[in-house]
Computed example of a mutant assay.
Amino acid sequence: MATVKTVSDVNLAGKRVLVRCDFNVPFDAEGKISDDTRIVGALPTIKHLVTQGAKVILCSHLGRPKGEKNPKFTLAPVAVELANQLGSPVTFVEDCIGEPVKAAVDAMSDGDVVLLENVRYYAGEEKNDPEFAKQLASVADAYVNDAFGTAHRAHASTEGVAHLVDTKVAGFLIERELEYLGEKTTTPERPFVVILGGAKVSDKITVIDSLLEKCDTMLIGGAMAYTFALANGKKVGDSLSEPDKVETAKEAIAKAEAKGVKLLLPVDNLITNKLDFGAGEVGDVKVVSGDIEDGWEGVDIGPDTIKLYEDAVKSAKTVLWNGPMGVFEIKACAQGTFAVAEAVAKADCCSIIGGGDSVKAIKKSGQGDNVSFISTGGGASLEFLEGKTLPGVAALETK
């Protein structure tokens, strides 16, 4: 892949710079931001532009307001939190296009920061409507994309705008994502160990296929593992599995063998006779090797598998982890995921956490600060690891 230009490669002093951030943050029951990871992730690019003396115009989406103005999805609280983090004012504009935006931008001095309202208040955003993109771009001399989490979507603010300005570059966040998910997994320091978990083989089959070309060892956990167990002729009881994907799992097993990749599957599982995810409760639990009987379902890897996986990670020089080992949200089923998190954090390696639930898991385990890189993209991480072109990156200038 050609290397994209970044904010380091251009001088944007005095320019009006439209920056696409990913401020799609979660809120708690009281309406407070419950995880500021994405805000913190945007700070290096914003600070760089402020220091350079650019007029910084930030835009983002939040949630799914379905093309309508809905106060439930306002970015106003993000402006407050962002100002706290920057230690300087952030002007919030109650629209993302039109006169209010033009007026706010006209009033800016060099180094000022403005945050526009949710771009998804307009249906034109997700439709990548040229007219909407034109209105967004009308206040900008340059464009910076720093929203890796939405780079796999060809929306007006992630792709359309880039074609309407002369200078279009990546921010530091996207630069780091491309470096870790791209370079460091394409030409990894070896041994390269990939850990894949989560619910469905169907979600990750292209990733499995792509990574079997690159890695030395692959560990499978989560509900995906029960589809692999079916492929090996085992019974999985009531475990979450995809019987229609058994052939796909068999193909992956065969490919690993042909490539000389060590494919490790669970040798034991923690199972329960009742799982109430909503209430965060399980019934009786026990550890079994081999078949799982009807009326019971797997909810985590067992102690022997934990040991096996820890040993595999210990000697790694590069680790990519995407997807939990079990139902880590419930304490009784979190041991496998947290043990793997600890093993990855302790290993003397470049450790890359690939978005989505793995990020929640590594943070919940308390090991978030002890890994090399945590990706901000769920779907974008997977698509990039699959080798797909990300429209939001492809629209930027290359070096």
Results as ranks from 00 to 15, higher is better:
residue 1 M to G: 14
residue 3 T to G: 02
residue 19 V to K: 00
residue 25 V to Q: 09
residue 37 T to K: 15
residue 39 I to A: 15
residue 40 V to G: 03
residue 55 K to V: 10
residue 68 E to G: 02
residue 69 K to F: 13
residue 71 P to I: 07
residue 72 K to V: 13
residue 78 V to N: 04
residue 80 V to A: 14
residue 81 E to M: 15
residue 88 S to L: 10
residue 99 E to D: 15
residue 101 V to H: 05
residue 101 V to Q: 10
residue 101 V to G: 12
residue 102 K to F: 02
residue 110 D to G: 02
residue 111 G to Q: 14
residue 115 L to K: 00
residue 116 L to K: 05
residue 117 E to A: 05
residue 122 Y to S: 14
residue 125 E to R: 01
residue 125 E to S: 01
residue 127 K to R: 12
residue 131 E to H: 04
residue 132 F to P: 07
residue 135 Q to V: 02
residue 143 Y to A: 07
residue 143 Y to F: 15
residue 144 V to D: 00
residue 146 D to S: 03
residue 148 F to E: 13
residue 154 A to C: 11
residue 157 S to I: 00
residue 159 E to R: 12
residue 159 E to L: 04
residue 162 A to N: 08
residue 163 H to Y: 12
residue 169 V to S: 06
residue 170 A to H: 12
residue 172 F to M: 10
residue 179 E to T: 14
residue 181 L to V: 11
residue 191 P to M: 05
residue 195 I to V: 15
residue 196 L to T: 01
residue 196 L to F: 07
residue 200 K to N: 12
residue 200 K to V: 06
residue 201 V to F: 07
residue 209 D to I: 00
residue 212 L to I: 03
residue 212 L to K: 09
residue 214 K to N: 01
residue 217 T to M: 02
residue 222 G to I: 02
residue 224 M to V: 08
residue 228 F to G: 11
residue 236 V to C: 04
residue 236 V to H: 06
residue 237 G to Y: 07
residue 249 A to W: 07
residue 251 E to Q: 13
residue 252 A to W: 00
residue 259 K to W: 01
residue 260 G to W: 00
residue 261 V to N: 00
residue 262 K to R: 15
residue 267 V to E: 13
residue 269 N to C: 09
residue 270 L to R: 03
residue 271 I to G: 04
residue 283 G to H: 09
residue 293 E to M: 08
residue 295 G to C: 08
residue 301 I to V: 14
residue 303 P to C: 08
residue 303 P to I: 09
residue 305 T to V: 12
residue 306 I to K: 06
residue 308 L to T: 06
residue 320 L to D: 01
residue 324 P to L: 10
residue 325 M to D: 10
residue 326 G to P: 02
residue 333 C to Y: 10
residue 334 A to R: 12
residue 335 Q to I: 12
residue 346 K to D: 13
residue 347 A to Y: 08
residue 352 I to T: 10
residue 359 V to D: 13
residue 364 K to H: 11
residue 367 Q to H: 14
residue 383 E to R: 12
residue 383 E to V: 02
residue 384 F to K: 03
residue 385 L to Q: 04
residue 386 E to Y: 11
residue 387 G to A: 01
residue 393 V to F: 07
residue 399 K to S: 09
